[in-house]
Design a protein around this nucleic acid. Structure first.
Length: 423
RNA sequence: GGAGAGAUGGCCGAGUGGUCGAAGGCGCACGCCUGGAAAGUGUGUAAUCGUCAAAAGCGGUUCAUGGGUUCGAAUCCCAUUCUCUCCGCCA
């Protein structure tokens, strides 16, 4: 969430930046400033009230000690109105604070100064591309057909056991999944990330901390009986490790990597976008999460981007990097790169990674801070990225590498799969 | 799931109604000591809100969370959450 002090200092700048995300903030910002002002007035009055009460209480204590019971009893009467007043003010303050918070939480993260306006994915800027788009014969199959031809992914079986969007991986398909997970984890560890195995369910505070709540309520599976959410990404539990934590400057950068299954309701998705592996309710992903000093977070973002590109290169997939326009960015991000691979039979680009800098937006929500050497406390910056999400990688591997002899496994993966062709 | 015990600062731990944001220890930081280190020794060491341009200062809040009793609560009462022990169940 946006820091109130920043908003107070320059509300206009925030409104202008949020307009890039096609978010009209002038009305909520007005409300916030008004609410904040009221809050401070009430707070001051209440503080004075408390100060007075404290004084009286101490005086009564003194009287009792010296045996002046009468004086004490007299003083007691003066506290009646103070107490009543305090009760009133407390109520007001509570309401104002709740109100203020709920307003603040509804403001998206203002985008980085380099972000261009835009409304749709077409407005995203292609900042890099690499690799040859393979020329497949007419008879080339999309991955869902290949999956059943080689009996490696069974969508129908998933329907039976659970429902649409929960495929079953079998034989070499299952092994390929495992190989990719290990490949991604090993690469990350080599690059200095610490492996984390997080819980797959989180409580409300965690979902709120990374910004899934309240914005994306309804996109997460929710176990009502225990009040727990199935994670949509490992970002949620891993970043929340640092909720309510005050780091030291020397702790930076914190680099974590986690493999997890991810669960998304994807309410409202339909059509060919969701065919096969393109969009699932449950999928596997290796996620990298970094906590960094504010001065270095954009440096880190570039490193993360390069790191992800390196993975795609090793997998020999044609890919491109998009810098998202304001309108296509997520609620919580300040700058996002999307990595897309080309899936040659579908003839379309598939997003396989999204690398973002959230600056202090998540940190403010979850009170993730650091102490400078001279004792000041600031919010840290949080970043994360997929490295990588499996299903669409599998989709493009299957489609791009299909040959008459079968599906060829990229060299870098063979030591993980133990086979070099799916036939 | 049943019975019991508990939750205090970065950690351990004292504190059963007033002067307690909280003894003591550990840790940490800085200094002294030392050729250097260890040991020893001295000092300091929570967060948050408000006031202020800012700092200092001042005022408020915080001893799991939320309510209550009281002039006054870490301390008493109630609820919730979590942890531990025992029993039950179980990968």
């Amino acid at each position: 969430m946006i820091q109130l002090s920043i908003l107070r200092n320059d509300p206009k700048a925030i409104i202008e930046k949020l307009a890039l995300k096609n978010f009209n903030a002038s009305d909520p910002v007005d409300k916030i400033l008004k609410c904040d002002e009221d809050r401070r007035i009430v707070q001051k009055t209440l503080d004075d009230n408390y100060a007075e009460s404290n004084k009286i209480a101490k005086a009564i204590g003194e009287y009792y000690k010296t045996g002046k019971v009468q004086e004490a009893n007299q003083l007691k009467e003066t506290t009646v109105s103070l107490k009543e007043n305090a009760k009133n003010l407390e109520e007001q303050l509570k309401n104002l604070e709740a109100n203020l918070n709920s307003l603040l939480v509804q403001l998206p993260n203002p985008p980085h100064s380099s972000i261009k306006p835009g409304k749709t994915p077409e407005d995203n800027e292609i900042v890099y591309s690499e690799g040859e788009i393979p020329a497949l014969p007419e008879t080339a199959m999309p991955h869902w057909d290949l999956a059943s031809k080689y009996n490696i992914i069974d969508f129908e079986l998933g329907n039976k056991i659970t429902g649409a969007g929960f495929p079953v991986y079998k034989g070499k398909g299952a092994k390929l999944q495992r190989a990719l997970i290990n490949f991604f984890l090993d690469n990350a560890i080599e690059a200095g990330f610490t492996e984390i195995q997080p819980p797959l369910m989180v409580n409300e505070a965690s979902a709120y901390g990374t910004g899934q709540l309240p914005d994306k309520d309804g996109q997460m599976y929710f176990a009502q009986i225990d009040n727990l959410y199935l994670i949509p990404t490992a970002e949620v539990p891993v970043t929340n490790i640092y909720r309510d934590v005050i780091l030291k400057e020397k702790d930076f950068p914190i680099k974590n990597v986690a493999y997890s299954s991810c669960f998304r309701r994807e309410a409202g998705s339909y059509g060919k976008d969701v065919r096969g592996l393109n969009r699932l309710h449950q999928f596997d992903k290796v996620e990298i999460v970094e906590i960094q000093h504010p001065d270095k977070s954009y440096e880190t973002l570039e490193e993360m981007r390069q790191y992800v590109c390196g993975l795609l290169r090793k997998l020999e997939l044609p890919f491109r990097v998009l810098k998202l326009c304001g309108g296509d960015m997520s609620f919580t991000s300040a700058l996002t790169y999307d990595m897309e691979v080309y899936s040659a039979a579908q003839k379309r680009w598939l997003e396989v990674s999204s690398v973002s800098n959230f600056e202090s937006y998540q940190a403010n929500r979850m009170k993730l801070r650091y102490k400078t050497d001279d004792g000041k406390i600031n919010f840290a910056h949080t970043l994360n990225g997929s490295a990588l999400a499996l299903p669409r990688i599998v989709a493009s591997l299957l489609e791009n590498n299909q040959t008459e002899k079968g599906i060829l496994i990229p060299k870098a993966l063979v030591k993980y799969t133990g086979f070099d062709v799916i036939d």
